[in-house]
């Protein structure tokens, strides 16, 4: 009798776990399913539960395979590569600022260290619109408005928050004794950094690069003010089509999601790297 109860209890817990899992999957992937469905819907009018007819017209149009003016979609390939290029340059520049800054903030006592730390937070601490309106004014005067470098600068400003905060947290988590041990066996400060600190910080640095990358890829407000009408990134195309063309908007949304998901998978793989477990 008792044994049966035990089995029943176990069964109950397993069932509960499955239900919770399905529910959370629904929460995470539910909206995406709708996106996927919309992206292949040729016709989908109320009150039908599912699209009346499906096809890949919007995908073909968006990827530039097919050109027609009938469905109001354009090739997003140029915008995609522009976004990608801006994101890559943003990551490289932001990280080459964030790594030394994060290291310094983590390892040295810097006068006004906390103040500098919060300075990096500034662009995200205030409502973004007023900041970017102001910036537009400045950028117009110095000729950066509506240019790709102008947009990259904005992305760096926004991305540095993640860059500096995550890198400095990463460097702080490395016990100073690991570096001191290296110094004591004859490694100079620079050698210690490249042979000991950097390899140990790599997962965290990668994670912060990914955050900067994704932030840049998705950045809207700054690009809207500084970049338009000449710099049209992927989120800009999404915005301009989202009002009237759900299919096209869905295609762009899915394409925007892809790099992020790829990177998330990469992070997970790297963060599981075994030696992280040996720290601490």
């Amino acid at each position: 009798m008792r044994k049966i109860l035990m089995i029943n209890k176990k069964l109950f817990i397993v069932t509960l776990e499955i239900i919770l899992l399905l529910f959370s999957l629904l929460l995470i992937f539910g909206p995406m399913t709708s996106l996927a469905l919309w992206s292949i819907a040729d016709k989908w009018f109320w009150p039908n539960l599912l699209p009346q007819s499906i096809g890949l017209d919007y995908w073909r149009q968006a990827l530039g395979v097919q050109k027609s003016l009938a469905i109001g979609a354009v090739s997003i390939i140029p915008a995609f590569f522009l976004s990608l290029m801006i994101a890559v340059i943003t990551v490289i520049t932001a990280m080459s600022i964030a790594i030394p800054a994060g290291y310094a903030l983590a390892k040295y006592k810097i006068p006004f260290g906390m103040f500098i730390f919060f300075l990096f937070l500034m662009p995200n601490a205030f409502p973004q619109q007023p900041i970017f309106v102001n910036l537009l004014d400045i950028f117009t005067k110095i000729g950066l408005a509506g240019t790709i470098p102008g947009v990259i600068i904005v992305h760096i400003l926004v991305g540095l928050v993640f860059g500096v905060w995550i890198t400095s947290a990463t460097f702080r988590s490395i016990p100073p004794q690991l570096e001191e041990a290296a110094r004591s066996v004859g490694a100079s400060g620079i050698r210690t950094f490249f042979r000991i600190t950097l390899p140990l910080a790599a997962p965290g640095l990668l994670a912060s690069s990914v955050f900067v990358f994704i932030t840049s890829l998705d950045e809207f407000t700054g690009t809207f003010f500084i970049g338009l009408p000449f710099v049209i990134t992927l989120p800009m195309t999404l915005y301009s089509s989202s009002g009237y063309n759900m299919q096209f908007a869905s295609v762009i949304a899915i394409i925007l999601l892809l790099p992020s998901m790829l990177f998330m998978m990469l992070i997970q793989k790297v963060l599981k790297a075994e030696y992280v477990g040996g720290m601490g």
Partner: peptide, 29 residues
């Protein structure tokens, strides 16, 4: 500077480099 003093150090928390094997830890210096 510490790296030119010819002093060996052993720490309370061992401070072995987690990304290196035992051999590499010893070989580094």
């Amino acid at each position: 500077p510490p790296e030119r003093r010819g002093i060996g150090l052993v720490f309370q928390n061992y401070a072995l480099w987690p990304h290196m094997t035992v051999f590499q830890n010893l070989a580094f210096g």
